[in-house]
Amino acid sequence: MSLRIVVAVKYVPDATGDRHFAEDLTTDRDAVDGLLSELDEYAVEQALQIAEAADDAEVTAVTIGPEDARGAVLKALQMGADKGVHVEDDALHGTDIIGTSLVLAKAIEHIGYDLVVTGMASTDGTAGVVPALLAERLGVPQVTLLSQVEVTDGKVSGRRDGDAASEQLEASLPALVSVTDQSGEARYPSFKGIMGAKKKPLETLDLSDLGVDAAEVGLAGAWTAVEEAAARPARTAGTIVKDEGEGGKQLAEFLAAQKFI
């Protein structure tokens, strides 16, 4: 039987751009060009590698977001995913983490899965909790923050490198895994991949397709509220000296004056 892999991806404002908040204190998605979150490229890569190692597998990339967010799914298709799903609905604007996990879980159930693969965090919100929330909602084992992963005989196993220890984990499918940036370099789409992606199925769904009540999501339905967002005050210009042979001593003098020595 075919191994059904769903990889969740996010379209984010480029982290190297000058990111801002919009007037309603949501992330301003117009100010900076968007792209597939770099950390999700690792998820797509591992999903593809697991699919390639299986006899028969299908990889579906799923995202939530406004029209542009389609770009994240398209990139995954270019890299080699078989089909895409884009959940788009005006009611989603301002949805927080809890709401995002609800819609994603519904979409993943709609697609059907044996294995869900995600990145470790998005590069915009950076909370890194959607994988755990998805596992809780789907009621499947969470095998998360893996730097190495493999699927054999209906089991997923992998290595989780934590602060205090490195752990070898194992769970039965269906399961959810998240992978870190240490899991292996993501491939670049080939020219053939880019051309072929245009012909791959990309389904667009709205909240009613998933049976989600609009009141449960969006800014009004959020479980948290951002009340203030202020640009961090620019750091006051520091002292910069050119090393003329005494740079180390001058620096020690500064550190002593600041009572670090």
Binding site: R235, G238, T239, I240, D243, G248, A252, F254
Partner: peptide, 22 residues
């Protein structure tokens, strides 16, 4: 742009000198 104190120089000169001074 972020620093309170910066040294423009070769770290292989500056760092050992700083360590020794500390």
């Amino acid at each position: 742009d972020l620093v309170d104190y910066g040294v423009v120089g070769d770290l292989f000169q500056v760092v050992p000198q700083l360590t020794e001074e500390i």
